[in-house]
Design a protein around this nucleic acid. Structure first.
Length: 963
RNA sequence: GCCCAGGUGGCGGAAUUGGUAGACGCGUUGGUCUCAAACACCAAUGGGAAACCGUGCCGGUUCGAUCCCGGCCCUGGGUACCA
């Protein structure tokens, strides 16, 4: 009986779909479990063999949990707003929606072939109005909320207004616009002027990683720094809670560490320095302007060593501090900084800066110290101003050396003649009342001192920045925002979803507006509460300017990619609900994602934003868990494994001769060959398919070869398979240009989905990155074939003890593996069991049936077929595999079920060397084992009358006798 | 620079983490089947003639170390003037 994987897989996929076995209900007496994959962006290239790695792992876990009797939510959807479809639209005019939907269809077809147990009825797409309605809804909630630092929670902004009304007499005197502006400083979603990378050619802002050396990575267009009014999310307000929440979730330590670094908590102090600014008026000579300046430092202990101050170029202190004499020089410096991108600044670490003309007074020594401006100080961190202690900070040190400023060592024994001493250890010197203290104590003492004297206060700072939330693009969620008198107002929730309008052109407008500027029906009729034609506006050159009447311009930016992916896991719980993002009761059933699988590249993006988003919804009472993802596992990336042929380019080369890889280091070919990427799909186990190669591209049509054995091909005399041409290989990113992309469809056509699933797991540990290497896939496929053959003539006989032992060993191993996400080690266990059972010629139902059940999470199709060969039980709805009765028999609590041997073997060692083995009854107490060993005749022989110094009994393992 | 993960045969990797290192698969070699090849099956396969030596290198703890500790060297990932 042949293993016809293609028929088997088609049969079961059809059966599952028709019976709806993977459709999940929100009402169940069963325990709930939620397994989620990070949903993909459907790219035009389709899935390659690397994408399903994590999906297979999560599918194994889902199927296991399902078989164990859990109600498992395991959905899939598409992150379908994004740049590639928009770029394609700009080039070809094809609407991004068309491209995106086609790509999604292809993805679904590919995913379905692999046999995942997704509940497709819950599929979500971020570009679907029924979905983005809730993205817009969340944005409105954020706009109408503020973060209350006292309770560390988001609150409705109406509370804040009430507070202003009650406590601030000025509030009532402000105009509506002024009130709005003031509230903007508190809203979780707010408009602010921010410095961005602006690319005029692409007509949009770019993230830092999209810019390289002042040019856009895509297209190589110039990028400039520009201050623009952008929507931002006050993620930084949640810094403390985002940090603290990490302690309560089961993520890998390295990922938590990445987030901790990103949040960047640092405990320090804010201190006030008085500034003395010389006045330009000679008649007022001797009189100086005085005002305070606040700085942030983590090294309060070093105040005695401050020899200058530095401001960030964008600091608001700059304007106050610069003197008339220095103005010109400072302005030139600021202009220079302004045009440098973040990236250039980082790449070019030369010390630059300019003196402001003013001095600060050291609050402890009363000494006058000069104030400089330099771009090594960042405006966005702390107060944008620092006290510089060159002796104990390497950046300050470099600056001091460059401008020849004094360097005062503050720690005993620190040699600061060539570099700064940054370590926080040692005894303080030159530091007044701190002298003699350890650094740690000195920091504490100084904090107390400045608090008591009012010079400063203890302060915690975070590195985490607010998220810029505007994109000047078409293919994204429209903001539910219109502008009146230049101020933003939210659309009523009843108007959601605000549909993405049609545009005639996906590029920015001639006037530099985002693509939505092309939309004609893009204005808000406040009175009738609906979207209307823009031409009914009297005139609106800029959308943010006042428009006549009661019709107002709508926001022209769209939301960034992370908007749609920040709460999608909640939507899967209740995907068809049009009254709420998720019904409260449904949310209380599923609660949170129990297991989340995806790449670690989202550590500081999606995984921060969605935690923030979830916490915000939690504060407002829309969800019942503070953290969205209970356990998270990062699967590694699958890299490409490229193959090469070696074209001979030495003497007399025709350009048509290819040398086998094993020969290229021979003297006659060394350095005379040129490696050429060859399509990995015409290479098998590094052996080139000669005929396929000749047919691959016209230039290889008449290719000739020197084979592995050194013989040459002759075009006419060659017979396929007789000689081998060996290809070289290397690990590279999987990409079209390297001809190393492997499509899962091809693997499935050749070996079947079950082999693909097993092999992807067999490749290595889930978390590790590894190249896709098909060299071992035959072995896995052979195993399935061998196992399959055992199910031909199943008999009803009592299993022997040996057969049961094999089975129970397997049960124990597979259970342990799945629960510990060690899927790669399960395949060998199956192979060993297969070997053992086949050596015993076991075809007994009592053994083979549970083996099929065990295999089901890994290779569901073949397992299902094998299972149904074993049993007369009908296929039942609601279960992917047979009845729960049988499942419980095959997945018992394995420690009890594991068939124990009656006796335990103890290898006995003398001084570490194994000498003999003895047996005693299982579960013999430790001292009894000791006694038995000493009484053993071999022990007596080895001891030869001597007293053992020590006897070590490791339970169940080994007895070691130290002489 | 800082943080994290890792380094085991010809290759991918086991060893449930202090107890017989190299499971399982690939590859290689030999054999069976075949007119022959492919498939399949069987056997061998860390090094060494052997005693022995072997988990990146040096040292330590331990009766015993791939595993724990100290120092160093590589590889991969994250992050980067955060005061």
């Amino acid at each position: 009986m042949e293993y016809n994987f293609s028929d088997i897989e088609k049969k079961w996929q059809k059966a599952w779909e028709e019976a709806g076995v993977y459709t999940v209900s929100n009402e169940s007496d069963k325990l709930h479990y939620y397994v989620l994959d990070m949903f993909p962006y459907p790219s035009g290239a389709g899935l390659h063999v690397g994408h399903p790695l994590g999906y297979i792992a999560s599918d194994i876990y889902s199927r296991y949990k399902r078989q164990k009797g859990f109600n498992v939510l395991h959905p899939m959807g598409f992150d379908s707003y994004g740049l590639p479809a928009e770029q394609y639209a700009i080039q070809t005019g094809t609407h991004p929606e068309k491209t995106t939907f086609e790509n999604i269809d292809r993805y679904i077809a590919q995913l379905k072939k692999i046999g995942f147990c997704y509940d497709w009825s819950r599929e979500v797409r971020t570009c679907d109005p029924a979905f983005y309605k809730w993205t817009q809804w969340a944005f409105i909630q954020m706009f109408n909320s503020y973060f209350d630092p006292k309770t560390q929670k988001a609150q409705p902004i109406s509370k804040l207004i009430a507070e202003f009304e009650a406590n601030d007499p000025k509030w009532a005197t402000l105009s509506e616009k002024e009130q709005q502006e003031r509230l903007m400083n508190y809203s979780i979603a707010y408009l602010a002027d921010t410095k961005v990378n602006w690319c005029p050619a692409l007509g949009t802002v770019l993230a830092n990683d999209e810019v390289s050396e002042g040019l856009s990575v895509r297209g190589g267009h110039p990028v400039e720094q520009r201050v623009m009014r952008q929507w931002c999310l006050r993620v930084s307000a949640y810094a403390g809670r985002l940090l603290e929440g990490l302690d309560r979730i089961d993520w890998t330590e390295s990922l938590k560490e990445t987030q901790r670094n990103w949040i960047g908590r640092s405990e320090g102090a804010e201190m006030q320095f008085m500034v003395k600014k010389p006045t330009p008026d000679p008649s007022l000579k001797g009189r100086e302007e005085e005002f305070p300046m606040t700085i942030f430092t983590t090294r309060a202990d070093t105040v005695f060593g401050v020899t200058f101050m530095v401001l960030a170029p964008e600091s608001e202190y700059v304007a106050k501090v610069v003197t008339e004499e220095q103005r010109e020089e400072v302005e030139a410096y600021l202009a220079r900084c302004k045009n440098r991108t973040e990236r250039e600044r980082i790449a070019d670490r030369r010390v630059t800066g300019v003196f402001t003309g003013s001095y600060a007074i050291n609050p402890l020594t009363q000494g006058e110290i000069p104030i400089y401006i330099s771009d090594y100080v960042l405006a966005g961190y702390g107060t944008g101003a620092i006290m510089a202690v060159p002796a104990h900070d390497s950046r300050d040190y470099a600056f001091a050396k460059h401008f020849n400023l004094p360097i005062i060592p503050l720690i005993e024994g620190a040699d600061v003649s060539n570099e700064s001493f940054d370590a926080k250890e040692g005894k303080m010197i030159n530091s007044g009342f701190l002298n003699g203290m350890e650094v740690k104590d000195a920091i504490q003492a100084m904090k107390e001192y400045i608090t008591n004297t009012g010079i400063g206060r203890v302060k915690v700072n975070y590195r985490l920045r607010d998220a810029i939330f505007s994109r000047q693009r078409y293919w994204g969620e429209p903001f539910p925002i219109y502008y009146k008198d230049g101020m933003p107002y939210t659309l009523p929730e009843s108007a959601l979803p605000l549909l993405l309008p049609e545009v005639k052109d996906f590029k920015p407008t001639e006037t530099g507006e985002p693509p939505l500027g092309h939309a004609t029906k893009w204005a808000w009729d406040e009175k009738n509460q609906k979207v209307v034609e823009k031409n009914s506006l009297s005139s609106a050159p800029s959308p943010r300017e006042r428009a006549g009447g009661e019709v107002f311009p709508l926001e022209l930016c769209t939301m960034p990619g992370f908007a749609g992916s920040s709460a999608y896991y909640l939507r899967y719980m209740d995907p068809h609900n049009d009254q709420a993002l998720v019904d409260r009761k449904v949310n209380e059933y599923w609660r949170q994602v129990d297991l989340y699988l995806g790449g670690s590249e989202h550590a500081t993006g999606h995984l921060i934003y969605s935690r923030f988003w979830n916490k915000f919804l939690y504060d407002l009472g829309y969800v019942c868990e503070d953290e969205p993802f209970k356990k998270l596992i990062n699967q590694g990336m699958i890299q490409g494994r490229s193959n090469f042929v070696y074209r001979y380019i030495g003497e007399g080369a025709t350009g048509n001769l290819y040398i086998s890889y094993n020969l290229i280091d021979n003297p006659e070919y060394k350095d005379k060959v040129q490696p050429i990427h060859v399509n990995v799909n015409i290479v098998n186990n590094d052996v080139l398919d000669i005929n396929a190669f000749r047919a691959w591209m016209p230039e290889f049509k008449n290719a000739e070869f020197v084979f592995a054995d050194g013989t040459s091909s002759e075009l006419t005399g060659y017979t396929a398979g007789a000689k081998q041409y060996i290809c070289g290989w290397s690990v590279e990113k999987m990409s079209k240009s390297m001809f190393n992309v492997v499509n899962p469809d091809d693997v499935i056509a050749k070996y079947g989905a079950d082999t693909l699933r097993l092999y992807e797991m067999f490749l290595g540990p889930l978390e590790m990155s590894k190249p896709w290497d098909t060299n071992g896939i035959d072995g896995v496929h052979r195993f399935l074939k061998r196992l399959w053959n055992m199910y031909e003539n199943i008999v009803d006989e009592e299993p022997t003890k040996e057969e049961l032992r094999s089975l129970h060993k397997l049960i124990k191993k597979i259970t342990w593996d799945i629960e510990n996400f060690s899927f790669n080690t399960s395949i060998p266990a199956f192979m060993i069991a297969q070997n053992e059972l086949s050596a015993l010629k076991c075809t007994k139902r009592a053994i083979l049936e549970p083996v099929a059940v065990l295999l089901a999470p890994y290779a569901p199709h073949i397992a299902e077929e094998m299972y149904h060969r074993c049993t007369s039980l009908p296929f039942r709805e609601g279960s992917g595999l047979g009845s729960s009765f049988v499942i419980n028999a095959a997945w018992p609590e394995c420690n009890e079920a594991y068939l124990v041997e009656d006796t335990q073997k103890y290898p006995v060692q003398f001084n570490g060397k194994v000498r003999f083995t003895f047996e005693c009854p299982k579960d013999t107490p430790k001292d009894e084992v000791e006694r038995l060993v000493l009484a053993h005749e071999d022990t007596a022989r080895y001891l030869n009358g001597a007293d053992p110094k020590k006897i070590i009994v490791v339970p169940g393992r080994i007895v070691n006798i130290v002489m």
